[in-house]
Nucleic acid binder design. Structure first.
Length: 584
RNA sequence: GGGCGUGUAGCUCAGCCCGGAUAGAGCGUCGGACUUCUAAUCCGACGGUCGUGGGUUCAAAUCCCAUCACGCCCGCCA
């Protein structure tokens, strides 16, 4: 209803300003502070005062006089307060909110008829997923959920770097070393098994004697050239390693859960010739220069001082050249593209955009969401090759273990006698533990750097997932206790007239607007902020408004409100990728 | 040196793009509320030169300029 009301405010305010001979390009619509009872406000009177030759409050008064609420369904009245014009909701606003909230899909926006490909994670398939990489799937998955809720047709892609030197090193190491020379794997899963070869290979290359390293380099070069030349046998050898490791990483990511519609391999754009085509096209452009035997692009028009080399002196392509072919493929198959990537790729993503423009693409359709690094407290960085960092599996296991402890501690002093089964305890521990990890990461602006600390990551207090999840469990508790479904057509919404009920209704009403804004700005964290504010409103309602024991009419109205609240918080959590427990 | 990002309460963060009503939360500290639809909750108190200095504006945490601190990047690696 918020979106509908905002539409009415915009239309009628524009008409009013026009009638008063004021410009209508800036309506100054904003959210009033908490202690003002209006849903929307306008500060436009400030800017019109000098034109009108009078003080802002007078202008605000004129606007109020001209504003015709008879033309609006969701606006009850308009009032000026000093220089501000405040818009107050009608009974239909609240009735409409409760009705809309009965839908289990509440918050989902109309189909935008637009396809979006969101690429995220895309970690090199070299070993187990560590916490440093985990920010990407968590942000990426939430953003994909959010765009989907906003009515976009979303495909989730993982771009697999299977053509680089690291994969050649990995393949050589895997084929060279014996299992018995390696340490025990840290966990019984394929990527933990195979990463040992990769680490051993890198150690040998760094510390081995000259002859060993030279032999290894020859073999690595042979693999790389086989890939570039389109040699099928090489593809198979490398592919075995890539697919195996990736399979294990997928198992890990599914725990979050983060799943993908497609794993797009980099070699695909070598094999189908599109990388070569791109290179040939670029050579013909006015930005192309041939310097020091390599083809480059001068990007000074884009304020990038560094030349972008797209063909090496030996004529082979680079990662970004292949990524150009990848992105042209995206543009051919989707209306819009979003990529979630680490801040270390800033310059590269600028070069990519510039080159895509040179190739004639509309880069307005590409959004690159950058997220900051995850550091360890002692300043050490996380590296698969060096075997440093916290593994995501370990973090999730620890989170679940701590959540289980909490659940068990609380079992003893539960007032409610609802005997949780062992399965319930398992479920709750998993939902809360993983939810806490996800929420902690998705709730922050991605551009902020994070220092990983166990206690902080696993804090289950307020402003964490369990706080929000508890709201859902409470709502479900009321509904199961009441054990009846309100007939929405006969419910008296006007009975929901206390302050806490009205506040909760307003929170429910603006959920679709949060989805709209978050999707447009590609900022899933605002959904997390919303869930916190929503939880506060719900808890106030919970404290002040008994549902089950209320008189018949009030009970029905409140039950309808609780259904709407439950659907809202369940769907907001779904966007964040945090499970909504029915009991905890 | 250049580019990008970050800097808001002791700590962790919203708010900044798009200027507007007394700068908001949580943690921590202190003090309160469970015979109640689940206290993983709620209520109250304490806590702020919004990094710093200028500028624009009726109005600046928000826009502009400068500056400091921290992070990342500046490879014919990925």
């Amino acid at each position: 209803m918020f979106l509908a009301m905002r539409g009415e405010v915009e239309a009628e305010l524009e008409r009013s300003l026009g009638a008063l001979d004021f410009p209508t390009d800036d309506l100054g619509i904003e959210q009033p502070p908490d202690d003002v009872d209006a849903v929307l406000a306008s500060s436009v009177a400030f800017r019109l005062a000098s034109k009108a030759g009078t003080a802002p409050p007078n202008v605000a008064g004129d606007i109020v006089d001209c504003f015709d609420t008879a033309r609006c369904e969701f606006i009850d009245h308009v009032a000026s307060q000093g220089p501000y014009v405040n818009f107050f909701p009608s009974e239909a606003y609240f009735t409409g909110t409760v009705e809309a909230g009965q839908d289990g899909e509440y918050g989902r926006l109309p189909n935008q008829e637009t396809s979006v490909v969101i690429e995220h994670t895309s970690a090199n398939p070299t070993g187990p997923v560590h916490v440093g990489r985990a920010r990407n799937p968590i942000v990426g998955d939430a953003l994909a959920n959010l765009l989907s809720y906003a009515g976009y047709d979303v495909d989730r892609h993982y771009y697999v770097n299977d053509a680089g030197r690291q994969m050649a090193v990995f393949t050589w190491a895997y084929e060279t070393f014996d299992e018995e020379d390696l340490p025990k794997p840290e966990r019984d899963r394929v990527e933990y098994d195979l990463v040992r070869y990769y680490r051993k290979g890198n150690t040998v290359l760094e510390e081995g004697d000259q002859e060993t390293v030279a032999t290894a380099e020859d073999e690595i070069q042979e693999i790389m050239q086989g890939l570039e030349a389109g040699n099928e046998e090489t593809y198979e050898r490398v592919g075995e390693v890539v697919d195996t490791v990736l399979g294990g990483m997928q198992d890990c990511l599914e725990r979050l859960p983060a799943e993908f519609d497609e794993f797009v391999k980099e070699t695909r754009f070598i094999r189908d010739g599109s990388t070569d085509e791109i290179a040939e096209t670029l050579k013909e452009t006015e930005y192309a220069v041939y310097e020091e035997d390599a083809w480059q692009l001068e990007l000074t028009d884009w304020d990038i001082e560094k030349n972008f080399v797209f063909l090496r002196s030996d004529g082979t392509s680079l990662y970004t050249t292949r990524d150009l072919a990848h992105h042209e493929w995206k543009f051919n198959n989707y209306d819009e593209a979003v990529t979630v990537l680490g801040e270390g790729h800033g310059l590269q993503s600028q070069q990519l955009r510039a080159a895509l423009e040179i190739l004639g693409n509309d880069t307005e359709l590409l959004d690159q969401v950058l997220y900051g690094w995850v550091n360890l407290p002692d300043g050490e960085s996380m590296s698969t090759r060096e075997g440093t960092g916290i593994m995501l599996d370990d973090l999730l296991d620890e989170a679940i273990a701590r959540a289980r402890e909490e659940v068990e501690d609380r079992m003893d002093d539960r007032i409610r006698n609802d005997d949780l089964t062992d399965e319930d305890v398992d479920r709750i521990a998993r939902q809360l533990g993983i939810g806490a990890v996800r929420y902690d990461i998705v709730a922050k602006q991605p551009t902020k750097a994070i220092t990983f600390e166990w206690e902080r990551a696993l804090d289950f207090e307020a402003q964490s997932a369990p706080y929000i999840q508890y709201v859902h469990a409470r709502a479900c508790g009321i509904l199961s206790e009441a054990n009846e479904v309100p007939d929405i057509s006969s419910v008296e919404i006007s009975l929901l007239d206390s302050e806490s009920e009205r506040t909760l209704l307003r929170e429910i009403a603006r959920f679709p607007a949060v989805v709209e804004e978050g999707a447009a700005e590609r900022t899933p964290h605002i959904v997390a902020t919303y869930t916190r504010e929503f939880a506060e409103a719900f808890n106030a309602f919970y404290r002040e408004c008994p549902v089950v024991d209320a008189s018949e009419d009030v009970r029905m109205a409140r039950l309808a409100l609780v259904v709407a609240a439950r659907n809202t918080i369940a769907n907001a959590l779904e966007i964040l990728g945090v499970e909504a427990p029915e009991s905890m």
